[in-house]
Every structure is written in C-alpha cells, then in structure tokens.
Design a binder for these strands. Structure first.
Length: 478
RNA sequence: GGCCCGUUGGAGAAAUGGUUAACUCACAUGCCUUUCACGCAUGCACUUAUGGGUUCGAACCCCGUACGGGUCACCA
C-alpha cells in the first residue's frame, strides 16, 4: 500500500490579528505535520471580501512566525499547489460550480435576502425545527436576468459519516442540512465550497480544525461525493472556553485573545507555544514544560481531548514564569525594558539600577509588563502597614532590632547588597534576634511587605536615604 | 426548538473492562537557606454529573435524566 505523505493546512481568514484559537489550530496542524514528516500549508481564505482587513494576512503570518510556526507552502512560498489565497482561485471554483450545475447537482437561486429572511421567520413562527430553504428556485424553469446564488442540491436520505480523529464516528443525515449556498451572488464561493475544492486540489490528507466546524463537515462531504474524490481525515478539536465555559469570543475581555497582545505584554513565544499546546491536548508522561522539539516528538493525535479546554490563566502565568527564569539577565532586561521605559522609570533611575531591579524580580515575573507592578509594590507605594504587619512590629525586642540596624546602616559608606548583608547578621547578634524575628521586622519596616525577594538586594535598590527614613518613621510610631 | 458534542479533585488533565483513579497548577504542612522566595518532601477525588442495565469485575460498554457547550448565514 502506498502511503501518501501527510499534508495539512491552516486556513485563516484575514479578518484581523492572530487569535489564540486560530493559533491553536495552526499549532496542532504544525505539530501533526512535523511529527509525520509532512507538509504544513497556510492557505488564505479571503472569500469574505467585506470582512477582509488590509493588514490581516501580513499580521497572521507575522505572529505565526513569532510563535515559531513556520510553513512549507503559502502565498509567499510556492509548493506547486498554488495559488494559496482563494480570491486568486476564482476561475477554479467557477469551473467546478459549472460542472455541478450541468450535472443537475446544483441550481441557481434567485431569491433575495429579504425573501429568504421572511421565509425563515415564517418557519420559525410555525415552530418548525428545520429552517431550511424551501427549494422554490429548484423548480424554476426560466432563467431570468437577475442576480443569483448557486445552491447545492442536498441528496435525499443520505447519511454522512466520518471517523473523526478526536470524536470517533460522527453521523449527520442529509435531511438535517438544507440546500446551502455554494457560490454567492458576487460570484465568490462560500467557505464550504471553496474549502472542499481546495483541500482536494492541494492534496490535504488531514483536516484538523475547531469543533465549531463539525456541522460544516457534511456539506464538504457532499462535495467530495459529488466529484467522487477521496476524502481527507477530519479531526475536530474541542473549543477553548473561558472561565464561564463559553467559547472564546472576541468581545470577551476576561481573557487576552490575540497573540500580538501577548507579545506586547512580554510573554515569550516558546512559553506561549508550550501553553497553547496544552489546550485540548496532553502529552504522555509527567512533564508539561516542553520545548517545540519535544512537543513535536511527543505529539500524538490520540491524545487530543474531547472535552472543552479551559483557558487557565494561572497556568499560563506559571509556564511563562518558568521560561522567564531561564532567560539570561540581559534577556530579562530586554524583555522588561519597553515597560520600564513606558512607565518613565528609565528617566528616574540609572541603567545599573534598572538592571538590578530586573535581576531581583526576574524569578517572580509572570510576564514582562509585570515588572512595573512589582516596582510599584516595593518602591512606589504609600508606605503604610496593615494589621498583621503592625502586630509584628509591636513584638517585644523589635524596636531594638530596628534601632541597631539603623545605627549600623548610618555608619555604612558603600551602600549595596554585599555590604548590607553582613550588617543584617551583625544586627542579629547585637539585638539578639535571629531567623524570622530578624528578617521579618527589618523587611516590614523598610518595605511594608511580609514577603519579597532577597532583602539586602531590595534595600540596595531602595537606597540608603529611603531605608533610613522609613526606619525612623517606623520607630517613631512604635 | 432540530442536529452534533461534552460532564473525572479548587483548576487543567491522564487512565477507554481488572490492584490504593497518573501528572501539572493552585493551596497546606515540613525540611533547607538565620527571613521570604527558590529547591526538596509530604498532604489534598471514602471516588469519576445522576438513575438504571450488561459483566465475576465499569470512570471506561448500553439506555434514560439533568446540566453545559457548539451549530443551524449570500461568515469563515
């Protein structure tokens, strides 16, 4: 048996920026292709000329590339199956549409949108379950000189079954599908028609897409049947849902939805790639932090989940943090710099100070832009204590500890992390405090925080004057 | 409403007929570093939405119920 080489495609419509759901579709197709030594094709489905955005294609490709998803064939890389954008293939669709017309498998429909709308509403009012087109144009014998659409004549009593890669056997009955529009009045094909033609002509072997396409599958199957073409394997991945279990909609602001935004916020492409790969799929084994190469290696379509994938923001934060930790100090600074600049901190502080800031907080950063929030928390807050912190400072011996520390600091010439650290130890000895009761009071009295990064480093960043002022202020209140 | 799909711990999710239901996040506790964090260790589902059935045996198979979602365009 001759095994055909795997060819899969990602087929975005250029209506906007790369969305997280589309990125997921692209990513799994990519993984599947690479795993099977196949080809990954990006085809532009631009048949909705009204919704096309000028920069759409460019943006889609740009962020795909940013994520590390590279393609073998597309509008800018011919693989012999082009053209790769549907508006450049209109003559192809026209030919096939004409053939279906000639063979009586499709017909022209002269109904106006208004008529169709009324028809549908009437059906709805009568409580009909199926709001299908009445087929009245099927029986027309004249050929008026009016604009028309071409409808596919759905066969009677036919079952459309396919063995879904994710869901298993799925069956639709033809009676549940109305005669659908293949070619619009403007002569441009609809999605279901163009998609089936192109997938066949481009020798696509596997169609991996979102579950929202599952009811489109019977329509596409009708086209394959009509032309007696071999069908690709279909796989419908579960939808990505938000905290409310709703499909991610572009208006939903509880979740950041566009890849571009993640880039802007200082997420790392590898981390995002990793995170997205876990949306509706799970690797064998107990590791979840995986590189692109590891993911390609581990990828198995049998592991595709069939229950919805919840977008877990905590997990994204965790994963991105793991990747940020692996960054060099220089890379971390670079990641944070745009946000520090935007917040005006680069004007206030020296380059060295900024670098130290990033180094100190690198390990707890979930994304680049978070650096300014951490900055505010430690350096730009109103310096007040909560009840828990006050209680701690009122413990016996604390005031003495603070006094000793302040005295030692005042005598210090070189104020940096290396010189501060021994002073903390010395404070412990002189004030007879240790462990938690040494560090906690010092931390609270100087930063108004119970927890934080390495204390000497934080103090060094605060600067001698601020630290001593804060200590004075605290001791006065005790 | 019709059709299609789903339902495992606080969250993600593994396990498709056979011992105590993986793993990850979060949380908690302990150890370590004179603090915190990191790291390491431990704990966290008397049980797989629910009711029946099949079976020696079911999270896994069958039927019903409830709940959730998707889709029913001259959008893709």
């Amino acid at each position: 048996m001759k095994t055909m080489s795997v060819r899969v495609r990602y087929a975005p419509s250029p209506t906007g920026h790369l969305h997280i759901g589309n990125a997921r579709t692209a990513l799994f197709n990519y993984l599947f292709a690479r795993k099977n030594d196949g080809s990954f094709i990006v085809r532009i489905e631009d048949t909705d000329t009204k919704r096309n955005v000028k920069t759409g294609i460019e943006s889609q490709l740009k962020y795909l590339k940013w994520l590390g998803i590279d393609w073998d064939e597309s509008i800018n890389k011919d693989g012999g199956y082009g053209p790769y954008s549907q508006l450049e293939r209109l003559d192809i669709y026209e030919k096939y549409a004409q053939e279906l017309l000639d063979r009586g498998l499709a017909y022209k429909c002269y109904c106006t949108k208004e008529e169709l709308k009324q028809e549908r509403e009437a059906l709805k009012e009568r409580g009909e379950d199926k709001l299908h087109y009445s087929r009245k144009c099927l029986y027309r014998t004249d050929e008026p000189d009016l604009p028309y659409t071409i409808r596919f004549k759905v066969p009677k009593d036919t079952y459309y079954s396919f063995n879904d890669m994710v869901k298993g056997k799925v069956t639709f009955k033809s009676e549940d599908v109305g005669d659908w529009v293949m070619v619009k009045q403007n002569g441009i094909p609809t999605y279901n028609f163009a998609c089936a033609i192109d997938d066949h002509l481009m020798a696509i072997t596997h169609v991996l897409r979102g579950e929202d396409h599952i009811t489109n599958t019977p329509k596409q199957l009708m086209i394959y049947n009509a032309f007696n073409w071999d069908k690709p394997r279909f796989g419908h991945m579960t939808l990505i849902v938000n905290e409310d279990n709703k499909k991610l909609s572009k208006r939903d602001h509880s979740i950041i939805q566009f890849i571009e935004q993640y880039q802007t916020l200082g997420y790392l492409p590898d981390a995002l790639f990793n995170f997205i790969s876990l949306l509706g799929w799970s690797p064998k084994g107990n590791k979840e932090i995986l590189s692109k190469e590891q993911l390609i290696n581990l990828f198995d379509d049998k592991q595709l989940s069939n229950s919805p994938a919840k977008f877990d923001q905590d997990k994204l934060a965790f994963i991105n943090n793991r990747y940020i930790k692996k960054l060099s100090d220089e890379e971390a600074v670079e990641l944070c710099m745009p946000h520090l600049t935007k917040a005006g901190l680069t004007n206030t502080y020296s380059e060295e100070w900024i670098e130290n800031l990033v180094k100190v907080f690198k390990d707890r950063l979930s994304f680049g832009a978070e650096i300014t929030a951490l900055y505010d928390e430690f350096f730009n807050q109103e310096f007040t204590l909560d009840d828990e912190q006050e209680t701690l400072l009122k413990e016996p011996g604390v005031k003495e500890t603070l006094e000793v520390f302040k005295r030692l600091l005042e005598e210090l010439d070189e104020f940096n992390a290396n010189t501060i650290k021994p002073l903390i130890n010395q404070t412990g000895k002189e004030a007879n405090a240790k462990g938690k009761m040494l560090y906690m009071p010092l931390r609270v009295a100087t930063t108004a925080q119970m927890h934080g990064p390495d204390l000497p480093k934080v103090l060094a960043l605060l600067g001698k004057d601020t630290v001593i002022n804060r200590l004075n202020q605290m001791m006065k209140a005790l």
